[in-house]
Design a protein around this nucleic acid. Structure first.
Lengths: 172, 172
DNA sequence: ACCCACATGTAATGGGTTACATGATTTA
DNA sequence: TAAATCATGTAACCCATTACATGTGGGT
């Protein structure tokens, strides 16, 4: 307790929302929602029902402020980070504990249970999955170079991990 | 519609529960919960409030059956897969679409937003994370060889992905 | 005239989390 | 005898999902 500022904890989605707004000061909730939809991870659906209440909560926690920029009958609300919001985001982004935690991977989960399959079931599954992961998935053209290269790198590593598993697994 | 059997869809947690029961026919809900708690992924907390209602739902969907094996005052309910349960599990385990989807990775998420950090913030974060991922985390001794080796392989692959990112990122 | 993108939101639902509550049996 | 493990379950809460509802403005 060398500081008496309490750092608020953020869920992964809350952190991502702050990060998106940090990139795009004055983002609308609609823009944030679309950013989630555009992201190559299908973990977040990017639904309005998630984003609109979420930004409202973050504003209530004083991590965001908003101003109304409606033009006539067309509604528009722009969000930006507060000072606390920026600090909280910084802590979230550099949280080593969180970064090291394994997360959630549908491929890994299935490999964990691969002993439940026999050779005739497992081998085609591994082969097809490997092929699919090897196909370059270009993603939407709107993606930034960083996002695109990270997405590609991650796909490659998962493919390599799968290859390694396939090679090393006990044959019957 | 060449078959009129409708394959039930399973969430990742439901699939994992069926897989655990398939390994350990006659598992208790308590055993399943502990399996989740033991798993190296902290994504699933392995809470009673998740597992007990879940097996009840799966039984209602006729994917599981249970029998009471209470001994005197000590309650005990054992679960096993039905034929439908086995078929559904097989489809879930070999679902290539699901296996290929990216899932959710706290490290990847942070790297996506790494452009928001300056050199003095990013570099120590990357270094610490890399070190932590390089430390062999043995995991509980109860782990099977397959789980342990997969866990290790996945940690290594994330570490390598991080290393590659660190080497390739644009320097300022 | 019609469709698509922009823009806001809510309602019902599902389901996982933490925390609580209880008790038997085993082990140190 | 005290603590840990086995074993069951519920209650309150949080929050993401799907689906719905509404309307503007620009392009073809």
């Amino acid at each position: 307790m060398n500081r008496n500022v309490k750092i608020e904890t953020l869920t992964e989605m809350e952190g991502a929302v702050l990060a998106i707004i940090s990139r795009e000061q004055g983002a609308t909730a609609y823009y944030i929602k679309e950013e989630f939809r555009r992201s190559p991870s299908d973990f977040w659906s990017g639904s309005a029902g998630a984003v609109y209440p979420l930004v409202k909560r973050l504003e209530a926690r004083a991590l965001l402020t908003s101003r109304d920029e409606s033009e006539g009958a067309r509604p528009k609300r722009l969000f930006k980070l507060t000072k606390t919001g920026r600090e909280t985001l910084l802590h979230w982004l550099t949280d080593v504990d969180r970064a090291c935690s394994l997360g959630y991977d549908p491929l890994r989960t299935r490999l964990f249970f691969s002993d439940l399959l026999n050779e005739e079931q497992l081998e085609p599954f591994l082969k097809e999955t490997e092929e699919r992961l090897s196909m370059a998935t270009p993603g939407p053209a709107s993606e930034s170079a960083l996002v695109a290269s990270l997405h590609e790198a991650w796909s490659n590593f998962r493919r390599d991990a799968l290859k390694a598993f396939r090679a090393r697994r006990p044959k019957r």
